[in-house]
Amino acid sequence: MANCHVTCITKPNVNSPHEHITHVGNPAWTMKRLTVEDVIQRINSRMDTFYVADQFGNQAMIGVVNPGAGRRPFIRTYADGKWTDNLLALDQCRLY
């Protein structure tokens, strides 16, 4: 199992803070970016874990939220006992 550090995100509209995230990434990864669906599958199967870190090295784990009512699962960070929006604060991934 790998513990993967996420450093960037991709959204369809970079100027919208409410747009859904389509990919997460890290330039150090071989694949550079993964789709959110791939991340959800890897977390749910316990294949890998994912996290974000602040400038001080504090980590927030990425988890899967299942909203129910026929809506698609999505990813979100979990820190200090609550769900947070740390992913939306990350820079956009560059296309490599």
Rank of each mutant, 00 (worst) to 15 (best):
N3E: 15
N3R: 15
C4Y: 12
C4N: 15
H5G: 14
H5T: 02
V6G: 12
V6R: 11
T7M: 08
C8A: 10
T10N: 06
K11V: 12
K11E: 04
N13H: 05
N13G: 12
V14M: 06
V14W: 02
N15K: 11
N15T: 15
H18G: 08
H18I: 15
E19H: 08
E19Q: 14
E19L: 08
E19G: 11
H20W: 01
H20Q: 12
T22M: 07
H23Y: 03
G25V: 03
P27I: 10
A28K: 11
A28R: 12
A28C: 04
W29A: 08
M31F: 09
M31L: 01
K32L: 03
R33I: 10
R33Y: 02
L34Q: 13
T35H: 09
T35W: 04
T35P: 00
T35K: 11
V36E: 06
V36L: 05
E37K: 12
E37N: 04
D38N: 08
D38T: 13
D38E: 15
D38L: 11
Q41M: 07
I43W: 01
N44Y: 05
N44H: 03
N44W: 01
S45L: 06
S45E: 10
S45R: 12
R46P: 00
R46V: 01
R46Y: 02
D48I: 13
T49N: 13
T49G: 11
F50V: 13
F50M: 15
F50K: 10
Y51L: 14
A53H: 09
D54L: 07
D54Q: 05
Q55A: 15
Q55Y: 00
Q55I: 12
G57S: 10
N58D: 13
N58P: 06
M61W: 11
M61E: 13
I62D: 00
V65W: 00
P67V: 10
P67L: 08
P67E: 03
G68A: 02
G68H: 08
G68E: 05
G68N: 00
A69N: 11
G70F: 08
R71A: 14
P73F: 00
F74H: 14
F74W: 04
I75C: 13
I75Q: 09
R76E: 06
R76Y: 07
R76K: 08
A79R: 04
D80Q: 10
G81I: 06
K82Q: 07
T84N: 00
N86F: 14
N86Q: 14
N86R: 13
N86D: 04
L87V: 12
L87Y: 01
L88F: 00
L88W: 01
A89H: 04
A89V: 09
L90H: 02
Q92C: 03
Q92A: 06
C93V: 03
R94S: 11
R94H: 03
L95C: 04
Y96W: 09
Y96M: 06
Y96D: 13
